[in-house]
Computed example of a mutant assay.
Amino acid sequence: MTSRRGFLAGLLATGLAPRATWADAGAPAFLSAAALADGGYALCGIGRAGDQLFQIRLPARGHAAAAHPDRPEAIAFARRPGTFAVVIDCATGMPMATLNAPAGRHFYGHGVFSQDGRWLFTTENDYAAGQGRVGIWDAMNSYVRAGDIASGGIGPHDIKRLPGTDILVVANGGIDTHPDTGRTPLNIVTMRPNLSYIEDGQVIETAEQPQQWHRNSIRHLAVSARGQVAFGMQWQGKGEAPPLVGLHARGSTPRIMTAPDAEWRQMQGYIGSIAFAPDDGAVIVTSPRGNMVLGFDADTLGWAASLPVMDVCGAAPSGAGVLVSSGTGALAMVVDGRLVPVGRMDLRWDNHLVAL
């Protein structure tokens, strides 16, 4: 792979190579950041069989990635509250650009491309104003900064695009932070998490939970082929956490998944990742704190399965199930309420798996 990349890099430099696609990077099915055995960090490409197709060094710990819809380009985001993201040519393994958050801003570790791949959208914190913003970067012009828009709330974390559209949905976690105090929440008493939908730069709809759950921070999203949004939460209150998973469709109120109290207790108030199964019939969530995967029926909203996995966090749809990743280096498939081991590598997978 190294020599092939070097050859391809030479062709690109001379302008003789055809336009690269994800096939030139080995046709990965997933991207994930990882911590390496030597103490370094990398962005990895993973095949459908769970094999590692490439490993590209990162300057610091990564969180999530955004994959260009056509070109083999990935944006590796630093862990919140990071101020940089690296644009990587996954076919050559070479960095293409570095995104630096504007003064007074930091990234939240997530981003998404427009439908045509022209624009990259990033979740950001304007910590001086205590407001969430969505940064806009020109992917056709060396990823230069093109502007920003309101996220519709405070603490925007995850961001997705509704299928077949350029409507964005943002998980505004509701938590105000400042680099001077790291990840410490500054507004627990007044936080108001929401889902915000953005079209043509304007917030066109927001959805909130009941007031008694205002400390249930909405953090991670999955979107079904029908445009339903599943959201996973992280409890910022005291005492036992309320339910941590919900579904939303535009024009309606959020619906909350149900599970026995013991299952919610096991998750320790923390959902790390969320994914729809490929047929959209199930929602799978992970908790690295609870060392547990939970499955829910997307139609009835009822709890369907509990599967113990040590330090599990990443989750993404794959084939007939959902692939999950662990800080132990393990990969496993959740299929019909069962856990099927896929493999293990000498690294620690970070928070998220990104499906291509």
Rank of each mutant, 00 (worst) to 15 (best):
T165C: 05
I175A: 04
S273H: 11
A34R: 03
R183P: 04
D24A: 15
T2Y: 07
A275S: 14
G173I: 10
V322S: 00
A9C: 12
A23P: 00
D180F: 09
A78E: 11
D89W: 02
A34V: 15
G269Q: 14
G321V: 05
L120E: 01
Q234N: 10
M310G: 03
L120G: 01
P242T: 06
Y108P: 01
L58R: 03
C44R: 08
V309H: 07
L58G: 07
H68T: 09
V335Y: 00
A222R: 01
Y41K: 09
S252M: 11
H220Q: 09
G50Q: 12
D70T: 09
R61A: 10
S306R: 13
G164K: 13
G104P: 02
Q268M: 14
V354A: 02
V112M: 09
D70E: 13
D200Q: 11
T328G: 04
D299N: 14
T2A: 12
G246E: 06
L11S: 07
M292V: 15
N100M: 07
S196W: 03
R19K: 14
A85W: 00
A304Y: 06
R118I: 06
V87T: 00
P156M: 11
A17R: 10
M257V: 15
W349R: 04
P95W: 04
M96Y: 03
D126K: 00
T122F: 03
R105W: 08
C313I: 02
E240A: 13
F113K: 06
D297C: 15
Y270N: 06
D297R: 13
V112L: 06
H68G: 10
A249P: 00
A76D: 09
G82E: 06
Q211A: 09
T122N: 05
D336W: 00
R255A: 11
R265N: 13
E240M: 07
D297W: 09
R226G: 14
R348F: 01
Q131C: 02
Q234E: 13
F121Q: 02
E199G: 04
A23N: 14
C44L: 14
V112R: 07
R255F: 02
Q268C: 12
I188M: 12
M292Q: 15
R161Y: 10
T2R: 06
D166A: 10
E73R: 09
V322F: 00
M345R: 08
S252I: 04
A42T: 14
P210C: 07
L162A: 05
M333V: 00
F7N: 08
V340G: 00
L247H: 04
A34M: 10
S114W: 03
K160D: 08
V169R: 02
G15N: 11
F7G: 11
A103Y: 04
L331W: 00
Y143M: 10
Q236I: 06
K238G: 11
G281K: 14
L31G: 12
D346M: 02
